[in-house]
Design a protein around this nucleic acid. Sequence first.
DNA 1: CGATTCCCCTGATAGC
DNA 2: TGCTATCAGGGGAATC
Length: 272
Amino acid sequence: MPELPEVETQVRDLQALVGRKILDLTSDTPKSFRPDFKEFQRKIRNKKILAIERRAKFIVFTLSQNLKLVVHFRMTGHFLLAQDFIPLEKAIRHFFKISGGIVLQFSDIRKFGTLVLCEEKSHLKVCGLAKLGVEPLGESFTLPVLREILQNKKGKLKAALLDQTLVAGIGNIYADEICFGASLHPASLIQNLEPQDFKNLFQEIKKQLRKGVRNRGTTIGEYRDTRGRGGKNQNTLMAYKRHGLPCKICGTKMRKIKIVQRTTSFCPKCQK
DNA sequence: CGATTCCCCTGATAGC
DNA sequence: TGCTATCAGGGGAATC
C-alpha cells in the first residue's frame, strides 16, 4: 500500500505537471470526491497547477485561485501519466485532462482513495492535515524530537509508529521493517524502551524510509509509479508479511500478531 | 478525552 | 470445479 516512500515517488514523477492546466475531469467513481463530483469538476476546470508536494501520505496540489487539491491513495490508489483516455490499467476510476496533451489517470481497485478540493486557507482543517505529526525525513525530525514525541506515550511501539499524529507517513510495511531493523518487538511498551532503543528506532525510521524512496517504493499488491512500473523495495523486506517463513537473520520461524487491527510479522528471537 | 469498532471496497485465498 | 466465507487495510466517524 502506498506509504511515505511510494507517495514520495509519485510526487517526484508528477512534477512534470507543474505549470500545466487541468482542463477537465471525468470519473466512474464520483463518491471519491469532496465536495460532490459536480461541484468538484466545475471548480477544478481551468485551474493551473502551481505546485505538487507530499505531506505524510497525502499529495497536496496547489492550484490557481487559492485552491488546494488534497489526494490520499489509501490502499490501492496511484496516478498514471498517459497521452490519451485509453485506460492503462483495469481499475482506472478518474481521468484528468491536462494541458499539453497529458491525461492523468487515477487507478484505484478498492475505491478507497479520496480527492478533496478546498480553499487554501481552510485546507489544513478540512483535510485533517493539521493533525499530522512530524515528517520523518524532514530536518526537524531528530532523536531528541522522537524522544519528546514518545516520552509520555503509553501503549505498543507499532501502534505509535502507525499513529499519523506522532510521526507522519509510516504504514504497515515500513512499521514492520523499522521494528525488525531496530531489533524491537512490535508489541514492546513504549514506557519500557531504553535510551539505546530510541536511538535504534530513530535510525531505522530514517534508514527504512530513505531506502524505500531510493528503491522507488514497495510493490506487493497494486502500487506502481506514474509510468506503471513497480518499485524494488519489496526485494529487501526482512519482516513484512514474512510470518511462517524463516527469519533472514537467525532462521527462526517468524510469527504473526495483530496490533491496532493490523497484521504484524516479527521474529520472536531477533525482536525482544 | 482516549481507546476501540465499524465502515468503505475489491480481489486473493481458504475452506468445503 | 465452483461456490461461499474470510481476510487485507488507512483513516474518518461513530461508539464505548
